[in-house]
Design a protein around this nucleic acid. Structure first.
Length: 465
DNA sequence: CAGCACGGCGCG
DNA sequence: ACCGCGCCGTGCTG
């Protein structure tokens, strides 16, 4: 029996899931009431920076409209500006009708099929064909960050004794996998991946005299895959504390020395596949991923990277991790047999799609079936971890010290504590989260690999502490 | 003015 | 044709 009486039945178990889902509820209520402080002035500055950048880019983009078309564009928009870069429709017209880019290439259409897609993936592939493309991508990034974050967040902030505080709504019954969701605003998608994005994230601050503590589960989904699939090679790597992506590359490319593994051409694709298999990654999907990776790095894609090569790559991966292959096959079999799959805690998901006559729908159902036992297990681990952390924080608060959980972000928990106690609290909370799968009675770890976390103490929320 | 579908994109 | 979310602006309709 785990913390809070949670079991690992390994079969559908509604009572167990009810108990698991209730576990973090008191903490969730607290988090919504406590809220997160933001630096509204900083967000204002960022908004200005982004606005400036956007008008510069807008001018540059306009300059690429051939003079013969300028009047047509002006008329269409009915404004004094020629083109609205925020309009995918107008960008598609510029790129594919006026500039006639990508002729001869098989350009992907939008899901509705109404027009050619101008999504990031597609534009990355065309990046080298015309100088306007990177400008559009840059504009899109700035526009997204400005409208969704820099401008929107301050409007939702409430004045609370001198600080501006954001209160999100955490949804506990929104997802099909047991994850939590966040809305008004969504604080689970605050930027982190780009330089500009990190500026936004750094506008989330600790209250005066406090520190933010971020603790995230390290590769939790891969570790759970290793455990649930009893995947021998993965278990060995995680037990010995090795780099799973480097190990994969050594196996796939038959390299004996970890130092000889090349990052761009070997470790990165392996990392993509290691994460991607949990989502049901296909050869086409991997190919896209690699193309975008190279394009983003500003490099031409080597001609040995083909769909066929990606197929071989994935086959090789499942040859190496053959227990993982069997595990996914078991989930697919269950999905077809019962139209249902379940995770280690007994959470179920119906997947009637696997009986569809439409192949595309059927495959989507199978990917969902393969993904659920892993994503749901990770969500369950997080719920136990959260409840254990809250027990510790309650004790700390009882001695008059400020200590509050602020926000769960799927495999990360953001905590706020009196600056004086940050180091101690970080260590305690990391320990609690890492003990999520430890049996309360025997003290035994109910997982074949250790559950690890990484923690950092900050005054501003950011990935690089 | 409100509501909707769509394309697009932020995060884990 | 890569899983799970929520939210933005556009373009259109009632």
């Amino acid at each position: 029996m785990l913390f809070g009486g949670i079991e690992l039945p390994g079969h559908p178990d509604l009572a167990n899931i009810r108990a698991l889902d209730l576990l973090p509820i008191p903490q969730i209520c607290r988090m919504m009431q406590v809220g997160v402080a933001i630096d509204v002035e900083r967000l204002g500055e960022i908004s200005e920076i982004l606005a400036t950048k956007m008008s510069e880019l807008e001018l540059e983009i306009t300059s690429y409209i051939p003079p013969a078309y300028l009047n047509a564009f002006l008329e269409e928009s009915g404004e004094d500006i020629a083109i609205n870069v925020d309009s995918a429709e107008q960008i598609a017209e510029l790129l594919f009708k006026v500039l006639k880019l990508g002729e001869g290439k098989d350009l992907k259409r939008t899901p509705s099929g109404l027009r050619i897609s101008t999504g990031k993936k597609q534009l990355e592939k065309l990046k080298r064909d015309h100088p306007v493309i990177p400008k559009i991508l840059e504009y899109r990034e700035a526009s997204k960050l400005k409208s969704t974050y820099a401008d929107a967040l301050p409007l939702l902030a409430k004045d609370e004794n001198g600080a501006k505080v954001i209160h999100t709504q955490l949804l506990t019954t929104r997802t099909s996998t047991g994850r939590l969701a966040s809305k008004k605003p969504n604080l689970q998608n605050i930027p982190t991946r780009t330089k500009l994005g990190q500026m936004i994230r750094r506008a989330f601050i600790s209250r005066p005299g406090c520190r933010l503590i971020s603790i995230d589960y390290s590769q939790i989904e891969l570790r759970l895959l290793a455990d649930r699939a009893n995947e021998r090679k993965m278990i060995e790597v995680f037990r010995t504390g090795g780099d799973i992506h480097v190990f994969t590359a050594m196996q796939v490319f038959d390299i004996s020395d970890p130092a000889l593994v090349d990052h761009l051409t070997q470790r990165n694709p392996c990392k993509a596949v290691n994460f991607g298999v949990v989502y049901g990654l296909t050869a086409a999907g991997l190919y896209d991923l690699i193309v975008v990776t190279y394009a983003t790095a500003g490099l031409p894609v080597p001609d040995w990277v083909t769909i066929e090569w990606c197929e071989k790559f994935i086959e090789k991966w499942f040859g190496i991790y053959s227990d993982a292959l069997e595990y996914f096959q078991l989930q697919h079999w269950r999905a077809r047999r019962y139209e249902m799959v379940w995770d280690m805690f007994g959470r179920t998901r119906l997947v009637p799609e696997v009986r569809s006559q439409i192949e595309r729908v059927q495959y989507a159902g199978l990917r969902q079936a393969g993904n659920l036992p892993i994503q749901a297990a990770a969500a369950g681990v997080m719920k136990i971890g959260m409840a254990r952390v809250e027990r510790v924080l309650e004790g700390i608060r009882a001695s008059g010290i400020y200590a509050e959980a602020l926000l769960p972000v799927h495999d990360e928990l953001l905590i706020e504590v009196d600056a004086e106690w940050a180091e101690e609290v970080e260590e305690l909370c990391r320990w609690e989260m890492e003990q999520a799968l430890v049996d309360e009675e025997s003290g035994e770890l109910r997982c074949r690999v250790p559950i690890k976390t990484e923690g950092s103490i900050m005054t501003r929320w950011s990935k690089a502490a």
